[in-house]
Write a protein that binds this DNA or RNA. Structure first.
Length: 889
DNA sequence: TGGCGGCGGGG
DNA sequence: GTGTACGCCGCCA
């Protein structure tokens, strides 16, 4: 039988552990493979002064077996392995105790590896990978699916994935007041969406009162409903359980309700009760044999998805173009629940839609694809592959260390952690090099961006950087080695290839092969898997460096993390020098692994050609590394380190494609109103595409004028913030909290505002700013006036000022000529006339008339503006509008 | 610049 | 379950 490994756990039978592997056949059947006769173990490296017989006595006393084995120590190069004890126990859960007392004899290794992983690693099994089983069917009474007792298990190499069953769920509850509390507030409704269908239905809504609405099942009460919910779980038997924010809300809530109502909680494929453990903020839910997938978790952590908010409404809208149904908070749910048939119908539809959206996000956006591959590469079970980065590397390293006869250190305990943190505090981990940018607008020629491909992984590989190759003490007898810019030494690969370098090599080579394969693959399903796989390989390679500097990691050695970044800084500095020594261009900015080269080339094709030429030139001179042409900016504006925007051009099959690209300059932020975001975008657009700073400044003045004239619609001025706790609990004054208090005092039916999301605008008045937050509807109804000064000062100008300052337009110039000028000056006690000395000049590309904004390439002979006689000042790129050649796009 | 405090998603 | 772990943003000094 061939199975794809979906999940695993262990359980004790007659005091002895058995491993249970939950696998899927090619046809989608679920099989639980039972493995007997596996014992927990770990390694002990005894102290020099300890005699074997000292330990032997203790081991015997505690009914433990042992073997003397030879293993390499993980930190620091040594030519020979050392003698260690492999301590073999019986009950995995007893290992921590054993480890605690045995530590007085030496250093334990791998004493904290989860038992299921111990087995998997020892047998070459990886999550979502295939394996073959020979065995006999058995009945256990504890596992709900077909069960086989294994005689022989062998890992297999297969690309395909078994068909899985998905179930999305969403609950509703009607709290009496405020936030729902699982101890008291019942679940009123559960929507379930199935893929593929369950009994011909794609969805069903369970309702905790009698109803005859279509595709619904009504029950006498919550208890009956929950009983049926579990029955459906067992009957449909999903592999994947999903739902929006289910890990943090729905599942823990359901589990608590089952507990309160004294109902069984075995929602998985075995007898074990499902359980939720609280981490720092998020929880983790374990359903044996199934995988809980929360689209919220995945989307929020996806670096490609940048949204203002990550609620289901925003996410569904932007990723699926789909709307959530209208519902104005939990108080409305309670109202509808108490209402008539139409109300119930609306609630049911609302409930059903949320499950549908979660399911669609998961399936249509292929959210799991990459994680399947991460599981296969790292060896983690799918459930764990959905978690953080560190576990992936830990698992991968465990596999690779074992293959080479190395042992893995345990995770740091509290004392070790304190030590590491102190060490870091003192010596510090020096990061990447970020060059001080030449701020301002660069518009006279294209700015070329060249990136080192996978810089840190390449460095690890090129210089054999690894704890296992690290020469702690270098002497005349030391084997051939590299000496790093951090003054650390690593033996050369011909002496021994490090484990990290080997992992990186495999990841990089496999990725290249997978990408090549993906290009020629015609089958769409296979192509999708291959693409997910290359992304997973890239993720793994790029985050390996991070693991070497991860305080909670098993191979944390600050010297190694420091070595990698030191090589990185050296590399980028070298690249800059090579470029500037050999080409007539300047590197105006560089960050970690990318360089920005300013040229005088206006033609896009010529600029790209030059970029490729430079990248080849540099690559030839830096062995083991590749500097690659990335993209070009026709115009490029940089404010500070890490904050820039550019008119980006990328050549595609059907010609040049352009867009405005921004890094660090946020045009969307949840505490900004729409007007700010819109104005920011428009300003960058004018500056970069038209190259016309004066036009951009005028645009801002117009917006300010509209604002003062009250012509800006309220919707664009609305700021949204949520009330998260009882109003009395807030200390300090915040606008939305003050508004909530007002709403409560105006409307006695409103009790608590917890959980409400408030929209507000700031109105004119003499009171403190926070006290002047108002409900937009109330403002409309009462015809109140908004506080334009607030919007200009606090919303519009701060982000805009930074942009304009970098192109040499000061705040005073920005608002010059608007009524606001005098208004603000009066407020700030400033002189109303712009003072030229205060004008910020950072980049000098043009000379502009202060009065009419006409611009010149050189200072005029008279020293004043020939058109209007106005005073001239230096600016950057202001005259661009006149000499920018139209491009092919 | 750095440290502190609050908040996220869900109903 | 042989585990014990956030990370960003705004405010204020």
């Amino acid at each position: 039988m061939q199975l794809q490994l979906l999940d695993a756990d262990y359980t004790l039978v007659n005091g002895r552990p058995i491993v249970r592997l939950f696998g899927k056949t090619e046809k989608g059947e679920t099989v639980c493979v039972i493995v007997e006769n596996v014992r927990p173990y770990f390694f002990l490296h005894p102290r020099e002064d300890i005699e074997l017989k000292d330990i032997e006595y203790e081991l015997e006393k505690n009914n433990l077996d042992y073997e003397v084995v030879e293993r390499f120590l993980p930190i620091g190069w040594s030519p020979k392995p050392v003698k260690m004890l492999k301590i073999i126990g019986r009950d995995p859960s007893k290992i921590p105790e054993i480890r605690a007392w045995i530590s007085r004899f030496g250093t334990p290794y791998e004493a904290d590896v989860l038992f299921k992983y111990r087995y998997m690693v020892d047998n070459g099994l990886r999550g979502m990978a295939w394996f073959s089983v020979e065995g006999k069917p058995v009945q256990t009474g504890t596992v709900k699916c077909k069960t086989v007792c294994a005689d022989r298990i062998k890992p297999l190499e297969m690309l395909s994935n078994a068909p899985l069953r998905y179930m999305a769920l969403d609950i509703e509850c009607a709290p009496q007041s405020g936030l729902p509390n699982a101890d008291n507030d019942p679940i009123i409704m559960i929507s379930l969406v199935f893929w593929p269908d369950w009994k011909g239905k794609s969805s069903i809504v369970l309702v905790s009162k009698h109803t005859s609405l279509p595709d619904c099942i009504g029950f006498a009460d919550e208890t009956e409903m929950l009983k049926r919910f579990k029955d459906i779980m067992d009957d449909y038997d999903p592999d994947i359980v999903t739902g929006y924010n289910i890990t943090n809300f729905d599942l823990p809530y359901i589990l608590r309700r089952l507990e309160v109502l004294d109902l069984p909680r075995d929602l998985g494929r075995a007898e074990k009760a499902a359980w939720a453990r609280k981490l720092s903020m998020t929880q983790a839910i374990t359903l044996t044999g199934r995988v809980v997938v929360d689209p919220y978790d995945i989307i929020r952590r996806d670096p490609w998805v940048k949204l203002k908010r990550y609620d289901l409404r925003t996410v569904a809208k932007s990723l699926l173009g789909e709307e959530k149904l209208e519902m104005s908070g939990s108080s409305e749910i309670t109202t509808l629940w108490k209402g008539g048939l139409e109300d119930l119908k609306r609630l049911v539809n609302y409930n059903r839609r949320d499950s549908e959206l979660a399911m669609r996000l998961l399936l249509e956006k292929g959210l799991l694809d990459k994680f399947f591959e991460i599981a296969k590469i790292s060896g983690l079970l799918l459930q764990d592959a959905l978690g953080g980065q560190s576990m992936r590397h830990e698992c991968k390293l465990l596999h690779e260390f074992r293959k080479r006869n190395f042992v893995m250190p345990c995770k740091p305990d509290g004392a070790e952690l304190t030590k590491r943190k102190a060490e870091r505090e003192e010596a510090g981990l020096k990061g990447a090099l970020v060059l001080e940018p030449e701020t301002g607008l660069h518009a006279s020629g294209c700015t070329i961006v060249l990136d080192f491909t996978s810089l840190y992984p390449s460095l690890i590989k090129a210089f054999n950087i690894c704890p296992t190759t690290w020469l702690k003490n270098v002497g005349p007898d030391s084997p051939p080695h590299f000496t790093s810019p951090f003054n650390t030494c690593f033996v050369k690969p011909e002496v021994r290839e490090g484990v990290l370098p080997a992992i990186v090599r495999e990841l990089i080579n496999t990725r290249a092969a997978v990408r090549a394969q993906a290009r020629t693959e015609v089958d769409n399903e296979k192509k999708r898997i291959l693409n997910a796989k290359q992304l997973a390989l890239k993720d793994m390679a790029n985050s390996l460096y991070g693991y070497t500097g991860f305080v909670h990691g098993r191979i944390y050695v600050m010297d190694i993390a420091n070595t990698i970044t030191a090589y990185g800084r050296d590399t980028i500095t070298n690249a800059k020098k090579i470029i500037e020594d050999n080409f007539p261009y300047k590197v105006i900015y560089a960050d970690t692994d990318s360089t920005f080269i300013k040229t005088d080339i206006v033609d896009l094709d010529a600029a790209q050609e030059m970029g490729i030429k430079i990248s080849r030139f540099v690559t030839e001179r830096l062995p083991g590394l590749e500097l690659k042409y990335e993209k070009l900016f026709r115009t490029f504006l940089i404010e500070t380190k890490k904050r820039y925007a550019g008119w980006c051009f990328e050549k595609e099959k059907d010609g040049w494609k352009d867009k405005i690209e921004m890094k660090g300059i946020e045009t969307v932020r949840r505490d900004w109103c729409a007007l700010t975001s819109e104005t920011m975008n428009k300003v960058l657009d004018i500056v970069l595409r038209d190259g016309d700073v004066k036009k951009a400044a005028k645009f801002v003045r117009d917006v300010i004028a509209d604002l003062i004239a009250g012509k800006v619609p309220l919707e664009k001025l609305t700021i949204v913030k949520g009330i998260t706790k009882d109003l009395e609990e807030y200390d300090g004054v915040q606008p939305h909290v003050e508004l909530a208090k007002k709403i409560v005092s105006r409307d006695p039916t409103k009790q608590r505002m917890v959980g409400e999301r408030l929209e507000y605008v700031i109105v004119k008045g003499n009171a403190l700013l926070s006290k002047r937050a108002e409900d937009p509807e109330f403002v409309k109804a009462k015809g109140m006036e908004i506080d334009s000064t607030y919007y200009i000062e606090n919303q519009l100008l701060p982000p805009l000022e930074r942009i304009f300052e970098s192109v040499g337009v000061s705040r005073t110039e920005l608002i010059h000529g608007t009524k606001q000028m005098s208004l603000l000056s009066a407020l700030n006690g400033q002189k109303p006339t712009p003072s030229p000395e205060k004008t910020v000049l950072k980049s000098y590309e043009a000379i502009v008339c202060r009065k009419c904004y006409w611009s010149f390439r050189r200072p005029t002979l008279t020293g004043v503006c020939p058109t209007c006689g106005g005073q001239l000042f230096f600016s950057s790129g202001t005259s661009l509008g006149k000499f920018l050649e139209p491009t092919k796009s």
